[in-house]
Structures are given as C-alpha cells and as structure tokens.
Amino acid sequence: MILTTVLGFILIILGIWGMLTQKNLFKMVIGFSILDSGIHLVIVSLGYIKDKTAPIIDSDILANNASSQVVDPIPSALVLTAIVIGLAVTALMLTYIIQLVNTHNFDSKNMKDPLSITSYEELKW
C-alpha cells in the first residue's frame, strides 16, 4: 500500500530530525527507535498485495492455489528479526548512556544537565 510506505518514510525523516536536533541523550535514542519503526513499516508495506490474506495456510486456502492468495511472507520474516535486533541495540545504547553519566566528572565545570550531550566535551574537537 503506497500510503503506508509514505508514512514509513515520514517516520524515518522524523526520526533523523530528532536524532540531529535533540540535545538530550535519551531523546536521541528515542529518535533512533522511531527511525527503526519507520524502516520496519516501509519494508512490510512493500510486501503487501491488495485483497490477499496473511501467510498462514488453512484448509480453505490450501484447497485453492495457495500461492495466489497470500501476501509476500519474506518482508515479514526479515522484519521479525530486525525488531528483536532493534531492541538489543537500543538497550546497548541506553547502557552507554548510563556509563556516560556514571563516569562523568560532575565537579569539573559549572554544573550543566548531565543528560545533555553538550555536557560531554572530552571528545570535542
């Protein structure tokens, strides 16, 4: 369906916008997670075929020609694994945030928000 593909691209753009403009570390990770959802939506909507059912065969579908009645199952299978990997990568990013906060030296300068990316100037050049 072309509408959901457009929606997925809009989500991707919004996610990238959030990742680039936000200062808060958590909101950057949220931008990544929205970008992830958008990519999943695009991939699944590419496999949609109008007026066909889900790729789960029962006796009714089996009686006729099965391959002419179901939507494309390959994008579903790919997205299934991508969602789980997305969760693992998000959790790893959050762990880095916790370690950044944990190792941050609070006394060095005038106390800024420790969850803001502008407080971390060690790698700035």
Partner: peptide, 9 residues
Amino acid sequence: PLSQLNPLA
C-alpha cells in the same frame, strides 16, 4: 504495487 508473488516467495 505488487499484483502477485515474486518467484522466490
């Protein structure tokens, strides 16, 4: 938009 499955699927 797809009208039928591709050969692999």
